[in-house]
Write a protein that binds this DNA or RNA. Structure first.
Lengths: 205, 205, 205, 205
DNA sequence: ACTTAATCGAGACGGTACGTCAGGTCTTGCC
DNA sequence: GGCAAGACCTGACGTACCGTCTCGATTAAGT
């Protein structure tokens, strides 16, 4: 997270255990209190750590919560279920399961909201949350092309644009369903969504 | 906004001008400061109003911002452009234009985030922001069915589910593109999105 | 303590009771904790008052303690005991009694120390603590002159210088005895001091 | 300052230079910042020393400042000027010159103030600051008695009491003039003070 | 015109959290 | 073992907003 590669690393080294304790305490506080009532003093107390230790490592609430929530998305992966539709359904369900957890619900949109006025924060979110998810889209498409379910790309730039589009559609739909409409993105919904995504409104009707 | 229809309403009536001034001041503060740095004391000062006046009408920051942002969405409408695709492109572009404004960018996701732990707030958002948008989906589908672009519904419950799905996909995609990916939802993107929405990944490829 | 004579005094007026409660709490905390361990947060709590209320009225610990300690000196007066020697002994004993109280012991020299680098603070000390005491010197001298114990002044400037000198000698001796030598300025000591002051080392020997 | 005479003193011996550097840095910081803004971390940095080194030798800020200020008083001596009055004037001027230095002004009364609640600190002040000064009083009296300016003592206990009294009067007056009245104890003032001390108010008038 | 009563501005109030700073301790690795 | 470096826990700092309250002054509707 922070590297001081130059020079000899003098002085007492930072406790590695503190980082983990702080992030776990942050998630715990998110569950109990939600974003707006979460205070850094409380997180420090839960983690058994001084407030100064926390501020030495994170610039503020936003950065801390991004790192705490980002770890939730580490478990996302794209298991091979044999078909494009099945692959999509699988990964969307995983994504929905993460968004169903209260620590993600309250924290994620809050930091996204803050990131609209803080470029460094947006970059941090992109690096640790968004880009890893986007890689799943690329991997899924490659697999579908290998199976012959999708045609190979001709224009690489166009291909990148399409991947971004698909990612926004998939992630956006699940987030909106979960947080705005406040309805569960369960198996039935995911089947319907995947059908529309693959076949379109006209084809799915 | 609030009615005290029972009883006779004696005494000095509330200033109608104050409401408008407060909401305008709220949007102004959202633009300049963003959600997290917006304070009610500052809004009151901008509006030339005492803090008590503000608290007499809104319960807090969340409710105030919902009302201030909701007004931005009042201008959304569904002009008849002759085809389903053109109708979708038109309304999506309008939606994107609203989300491009800084007062919406910073405020909207923040209150959505808060609403994950506050049912009354979620209901307020739904009523004044979400449901009016959802009506546009219904209106668009009816128009497309009248044109023969989409088959008439058979199962009304299934039809409601589909409308919700479409709404989550459309709104979610635009929001995600604009706020998370932080890229503009411009005409080119909207064309690509509409194509995928109507034809699906397979059909659009 | 603070007057806002101009204009109309709008807004909620300051609580008069709070001032008294805060000063009393300050003295209480001085007794229990001493200057260096006294915290404004603790004083606020003892006074049943918010920290902000305290800061609204005093700039900091120094100013607060000056006001709290100054009240102790309000009781100083110069009773007519019939002779210059008896008058001096009487007022010095009173002064010593005040300096024997723990709230004065810990607080007084601390603010004097701070005042060496803070002109406004020195002025505050002078106005509310020192000058009233100095008036007693002038009053005592006038009385002694009326009795014929001291000759009337000829040069008024010289008279002012002498009054200052006497004040520094009297106050300084008692303070030094009490705080530096840490011995009680009891009746015996006061008698000896008065004898030296009136007759000098040579005359007193 | 601290002796570990028992045992064999193994390991690296303490740097003698560090002690001097720390005390000098302390006085420098007192001049620049004053007592209340002086921090041990800053002193350590100025002295080019780690905070641990400092704490290994002094228990805290109070003890450190006492030692740093005490060195200022080492230069006090009682040169023989031929008469009691001249001797007093000489030593009082020296004392006043030390108190005029900012490192003494800010530091001395602060530690005296602290010493009202810390017996060990008071003892340290007495040993390293007060008692050496008091010796000057004894020496001056002996010299005056040898000259026949003062009668020889009859009661040794009474003599000790008188010496203490004189010391409190002299030191107290200079301290009060310098720090409380914040006026210079210059030659003119010292002449007036000495005259009153020797002849008394009545005799000096 | 005269009450009546809720509104308005101003700003003080009790709180809570902020982010920083200093005190004093502990843990490294080098000397 | 001393030492420089710097992380650590603790606790206070002074500030900013919160949402409530207390003022005196308006301001309409009902008399």
């Amino acid at each position: 997270m922070q590297s001081r590669s130059p020079a000899v690393r003098t002085g007492r080294p930072r406790s590695a255990a503190a980082d983990a304790a702080i992030l776990a305490a942050t998630r715990e506080a998110l569950v109990e209190l939600g974003w707006s009532k979460l205070t850094l003093g409380d997180v420090a107390t839960r983690a058994g750590v001084a407030k100064t230790t926390l501020y030495r490592r994170w610039a503020g609430k936003n950065e801390l919560v991004v790192d705490a929530v980002a770890e939730l998305f580490d478990e996302l992966e794209l298991p091979d279920r044999g078909s494009l539709a099945a692959d999509i359904e699988g990964v969307v369900l995983q994504f929905a399961a993460i968004l169903a957890r209260p620590e993600a619900r309250s924290g994620l949109m809050a930091v996204v909201s803050e990131s609209t006025r803080d470029d460094a924060l947006r970059e941090r979110i992109r690096t640790s949350v968004v880009d890893p998810q986007k890689d799943l889209v690329l991997e899924g498409r490659a697999r579908a092309q290998a199976r012959g379910e999708l045609p190979p790309e001709t224009d690489p730039e166009e291909a990148a644009r399409t991947a971004d589009l698909i990612f926004d559609v998939v992630a956006g739909a699940v987030v909106h369903r979960t947080l705005v409409s406040a309805e569960p993105a369960d198996e039935e919904w995911v089947r319907g969504f995947t059908r529309v995504l693959l076949l379109g409104l006209v084809g799915a009707a």
